[in-house]
Nucleic acid binder design. Structure first.
Length: 541
RNA sequence: GGGGCUGUAGCUCAGAGGUAGAGCAUCUGCCUUUUAAGCAGAGGGUCGAUGGUUCGAGCCCAUCCAGCCUCACCA
């Protein structure tokens, strides 16, 4: 155990100063971390409710000190609570020498509770004239609070804002304190999920939970994270999709089930991929993909209204219109429309010729489906800005989808594209167990040839299908990407509170400014939050 | 994994091979309606890490670490 003295020697001046204040508070019999506070008002409500002609109203607020302007025997500060900021005014003559001296021990970042009356200052800002305050939590680390002002138009202007992306993602609490718009994004994310859940619940679909740890993974083409269960001494995989378990529940007699949960895919990371991400999957018995398009239109319209209070979402200066119906166009038509090339009925050689004409590179190992997919994703996808259902996919790419009722070589599948991104994926689910077995055997063959993204053969799933699954429509929606879309976020990391990051560098091999916050060996035992956690999840590679 | 850019004080950033800088934040003094408060003064740095070149490296070279962008892979 290191002594307080040793600890303090390792701290910079700013932190040492605050530790000293902490001890000074104790010396004055002030608890720097008391147990609660009776909060009756919020910053934004207090500001909104103020009328100059009204009698001075008494309020009790709590929040973090974000600015302090001391002027000798009186001071101004701004408190920030979960609703916003409000200025408070403290005067020695009102508070008394002792309390005012106590206020001098407070810093930006400290959390206090205040009571007082609301008034308007000479310069016009509605503020709280403090009659009493309590320290609720002492802040021992300096907060990188930037200067800001409100311009003539009432806009917030921030100087030298805290913008270091690495620190913002690693220290999300700081980011949330200092960049209020970040909080807005996550409030919208919450509203989005709530609206979606409420939409699904109102239709009577049942929310369920299926295993995250799976002995076999399936339902999508992706590499998994691998872990190990000690007691059973077996390999388990973190799920890449919920699909196969949800279908078992349809077999079991649920007519509509959905799950909103994390999936995990052991693949590259970029601004639209995080190794763990949130997926909503919905399965509805006796329905097909055409029916599901109607539902998706209505659901996204409803969800966007909840988030943006409008029929549109603004992304990059473009208004995306969620008013149903969305455009529906078969994949081959979309390719024809965009490139002038018709691919219907072409064999692999014909498709390769088309790809060549369009300047699309193909791999000799690819089959017809993959070539079509490549043409589509390189020549068409980006042009799909307004919500568009692309329907009827090549069968090779969709081992869990039902054959198209009227077009050979295709399946009944759609993907919804918005702003050039895939947002939803849906099939009429394959419920013929014999067909399903053959397709999974094909996948197993691909796997045996080294395609580590091909699906595993899940005998239990086939067996379950053999009991009989009703016709079913299945849907998957990436919640992170939908959130990006509805909030205009440019990176998936901006809609995930704690995005996956490389670990901070180990003690002794510190990088960048992060080292200021990293533990050194001598303090590890006292800094549990800094100890690298053991992980059960191992990267395959 | 490839390519490009970046890493300097708590934050935002300057820095032409020759003694590490600014603004804000912090500290001291003054200041009882301020608001990017003000005035006067002060402290604060392993220049991401390690090696090399050089009389001398924040700067040049190499390797490594981390982040961002981009491509590839991938929905």
């Amino acid at each position: 155990m290191s002594t307080p003295t040793n600890e303090m020697e390792e701290l910079n001046d700013l932190m040492r100063r605050r530790r000293e204040e902490y001890h000074e508070l104790l010396a004055r019999n002030v608890n720097p971390y008391p147990y609660g506070y009776e909060v009756t008002d919020t910053a934004s409500e207090t500001l909104a409710a103020f009328r100059d002609e009204d009698a001075q109203r008494t309020v009790a607020l709590a929040g973090r000190i974000m600015t302090i302007r001391r002027m000798g025997k009186a001071s101004f500060a701004h408190l920030q609570d979960h609703t916003g900021r409000i200025q408070v005014y403290l005067k020695r003559d009102d508070l008394g020498d002792e309390a005012y001296a106590l206020f001098k021990l407070l810093d930006i970042g400290d959390i206090i509770g205040v009571t007082g009356f609301v008034f308007r200052t000479k310069t016009g800002e509605v503020s709280v004239h403090v009659q009493g305050f309590v320290l609720l939590a002492k802040s021992l680390r300096p907060l990188p609070v930037p200067k800001e002002k409100t311009d003539e138009q009432g806009n917030r202007v921030v100087f030298d804002q805290f913008t270091d992306k690495e620190l913002r993602y690693r220290k999300r609490a700081l980011d949330l304190i200092l960049n209020p718009e970040v909080k807005d994004v996550f409030l919208k994310r919450s509203q989005l999920i709530r609206a979606m859940r409420s939409f699904l619940d109102s239709r009577g679909y049942i929310e369920v939970e299926t295993p995250v740890l799976q002995p076999l993974y399936g339902g999508a083409a992706a590499r998994p994270f691998v872990t190990h269960h000690n007691a059973l001494d077996m390999t388990l995989y973190l799920r890449i999709a919920d699909e196969l378990y949800l279908k078992r529940l349809i077999v079991g007699g649920f007519d509509g089930v959905y799950e909103i949960s994390k999936d995990f895919r052991n693949e590259g990371m970029d601004r639209s991929h995080n190794p763990e991400f949130t997926m909503m999957e919905l399965y509805v018995a006796y329905k097909d993909y055409a029916w599901m398009m109607d539902l998706v239109e209505e659901m996204l319209f409803t969800v966007n209204r909840a988030v943006n209070n409008a029929n549109t979402a603004m992304v990059g200066g473009v208004a995306l219109d969620f008013t149903p119906p969305f455009r529906r166009i078969p994949m081959s038509e979309a390719i024809a429309e965009r490139t002038g090339e018709r691919i219907d009925g072409l064999d692999e050689a014909g498709l390769r010729a088309v790809a060549r004409r369009l300047g699309v590179d193909t791999d000799p190992a690819w089959g017809a489906g993959k070539i079509i997919d490549e043409i589509f994703s390189t020549r068409v996808e980006a042009s799909l800005v307004q919500p568009t259902f692309i329907t009827d996919y090549p069968i090779e790419l969709s081992p869990l989808a039902k054959k198209h009722r009227s077009a050979a070589g295709l399946v009944e599948r759609f993907e919804l594209y918005i702003n050039g991104q895939e947002i939803a994926n849906c099939f009429s689910e394959l419920n013929d167990p014999i067909d399903q077995r053959e397709r999974l055997v094909d996948q197993a063959r691909l796997r045996a040839r080294g395609d580590d993204e091909a699906m595993s053969f899940d005998e239990d799933f086939i067996e379950t299908l053999e009991y009989g699954m009703p016709p079913t429509a299945g849907l998957g929606i990436g919640i992170d990407r939908l959130t990006m879309l509805l909030t205009g976020a440019e990176s998936i990391r901006d809609v995930i509170l704690f995005p996956t990051m490389r670990p901070e560098t180990a003690p002794g091999r510190e990088g960048k400014k992060v080292h200021e916050h990293a533990p050194d060996a001598a303090r590890l035992d006292e800094s549990p939050e800094s100890v690298v956690p053991p992980t059960n999840v191992q990267d395959q590679e």
